[in-house]
Design a protein around this nucleic acid. Sequence first.
DNA 1: CTGTTAGCGCATTCAT
DNA 2: ATGAATGCGCTAACAG
Lengths: 327, 327
Amino acid sequence: MATMKDVAALANVGVGTVSRVLNDSGAVKESTRRKVQAAMKELNYIPNAYARGLKMNKTYTVALIIPTIWHPFFSEFAYYVERNLSEHKFKMLLCNSDVSNEKELEYIQMVQENKVDGIIGITYSDLDNFVSSHLPFVTIDRHFKEETVCVTSDNFQAGQLAVEKLVEKGCRKLGYIGTHSRFPSETTKRRAGFVEQAERMNIPYAIYDEMDPVLDLLAGIKTFFEKHPDVDGVFAHTDFIALDILEVLDAMERHVPEEIQIIGCDGIKMEAGRRQIVSTIRQPVDLMAQAAVKKIIELIDGEAVKEKITLPVTYIEGPTTKNNCVK
Amino acid sequence: MATMKDVAALANVGVGTVSRVLNDSGAVKESTRRKVQAAMKELNYIPNAYARGLKMNKTYTVALIIPTIWHPFFSEFAYYVERNLSEHKFKMLLCNSDVSNEKELEYIQMVQENKVDGIIGITYSDLDNFVSSHLPFVTIDRHFKEETVCVTSDNFQAGQLAVEKLVEKGCRKLGYIGTHSRFPSETTKRRAGFVEQAERMNIPYAIYDEMDPVLDLLAGIKTFFEKHPDVDGVFAHTDFIALDILEVLDAMERHVPEEIQIIGCDGIKMEAGRRQIVSTIRQPVDLMAQAAVKKIIELIDGEAVKEKITLPVTYIEGPTTKNNCVK
DNA sequence: CTGTTAGCGCATTCAT
DNA sequence: ATGAATGCGCTAACAG
C-alpha cells in the first residue's frame, strides 16, 4: 500500500506538499499539483483514515445505536441516517442493543475506543451518565436531561389526530391499546393525546395499556374487546400492535374496518415504495433522520443549540379504516 | 482523554508495561499489573483504537454493503451479521448502495481508506475488479469468480420444493412469476429448480419472468393471469412479489388460497418473533449471516478455504396455501 | 510556494 | 520483568 511518502518521492516533492494537494489546503503551484496528482494515480494511492484520524482526533464516524435493525421502523430510520451521514462524508457504525442495558454499555465503551465523533441513539438506559459530556449525543424519542438534544415526532398530536379521524369516520366509542416501556419515552404522549382529544370531543373511550415486556398481548387484547364489545374504533400505540389487534379481531370474527376501525402509529413500510400495512399516524422518519444527522454534525462542529426538535405527524389512509367518508 | 503515557506515569512504570497488561501479552509481575490496572481505572483510561489500528494495520472492522437496509431480508441479514461480528469483537460499518454502481464504488473507496479488515457484500457491480485481491471479500448470492467466497442458500432446491408443495396441496397447473437482475445471481436458479421439478412431475406450468427494473409489475401479473386463467398454484420469486400477486388477484376477485395458492421465496419477517407474511420457501438468513461472518474472519486470519457455501431452504406454511392437506 | 520536522497513541523490539 | 526507543501515516507549524 502506497503511502504519502511514496507519492512524495515519486513526485519529487515533500510530504507536506502532498498533504496540501490532498486536502486542498495551503497554496500549491498548479504544475506541482499535477505532478503530485499524477504520482497519486500511478501509485494508486489511498489515504489512510486511521493515520489521519489519529492525527486530527476526528474520524468522521457516527455510531447509530438502536434496539434492533430488524424492524421496519428502525431500518427505515437507519437507512435515512446513513444516507444523510454519507452525504456529509460521514460513516456509520451500526449497533444493535437488543434493548439490553448491558449491550448498550458495551457499545458505549466500544464507540469511545473507536473515537466516533458522535452518537445517535434510540436507547433505554441512562446512557447519558456513561457518555462523557464531550461526546456529541442525539437521542430519539427520549429526553434524558435538559442538555440532551432530542429529536422526536409530535406524539401528543398523533393521539389527537387518531381520535379526530376515528370520530370523523363514524366511530362512537374508542379504544386505546398499547404497551409502554419501563423507561420514560416521548411515545407515552400518544396515549395522553388520545385521552385529551377524546375528552375534548366528549366521546367515550376505554384503555388497555400494559408495561413491557408483555407475556401474552393477544390474550390481553382479546379480553379488552370482550369487556368492551361496543368499542368501534381503536388507536393502537404502534402499527405492530395494530396488526396484533387485527389478528385477534379476525379470530373473534369481527370485521375490520366494517365493524371496527383501527388506526396504528408509526407508519412503517417494509421497504421504500411499498404501502403502509394499516391505517396509521405516520412519523416523518426521513425528516427525523435528517434532523438527527444535522444536529449531530452541528454538535460535532461545536455550533449546535441544545434543544428538542418535534416534527409533525400525518394521517395515512390504509386498509383498516373506512375511506368512504367526508374528508 | 488519558493516554497510555498518563497511565504509565501514574503507575510509575513504562508505557511498554501498560501495553503489556492491556493486551495481556508478555509477562508482568502481579503486583505491577494491579498498580497499572488501578491507574487505568483512576484515569478512566480508554484505549485509542485509531492509534492501535495504525500501528497494527488491523481495525477489527468489517463493512457490510447491501442495496438497502430498509428491506426485511437485508435488515434481518444485517442484524445477524452485526451480532455475529460483535461476538468476535468486530465492528460493522453499514453501507447502503441503493443498487447504484456508482455508490458501490464510492463505498469501496471509503472502506479502503478506512482500513476495514474485510467486506461482506450483496452487490451488483463487478466489484471484484475494484477490490484489491488483498481485501477479504465474502459475497452473498453472487458468484463472481472461482476465487471469491460466496454464501448462498439452495435456490434451485427452493424452486423444486415450491413445486412439490404446490402439487402436494392439489394444484393442477403452476405458474412462476418473478423478475431478475441484469447481473448474474444465484437466485435465478429458483426458476430453474421450478422448471426442473415441474417437468419431472409432469405438471403443466407457465412462466412470467421480467428483467429489472420493471415498469409496471402489477399490470404484467394481471396479464399473466388473464392469459393463464387455469393456473391454480404460483411460485413467486420473492415474498414481495407474492404480495403483489395477492394484490392483483384480490382486485380480480380470485380467492387465495381457495382458488389459487401462492408460495413466495425468502421467508421475510418484519421483525424477530413475527410470522411470515405469506407461505414461503425460507432462506436460513441467520445461518447465512453466521457463515458469512465465519468466512470473512477466516479470510482475515488468512486461514480460509475459498469456496461456495450453499445452505438448505425450508418450506414454511403461511396464509396463502391450504393447510388441510396430507403433510 | 515548498521541504523538513514534530508529534498523535500505541505495540514492539532491544537492552537491561 | 520492565523501561526506553522506534515508527505506523498523516497534518500542521515552521523555516526557508
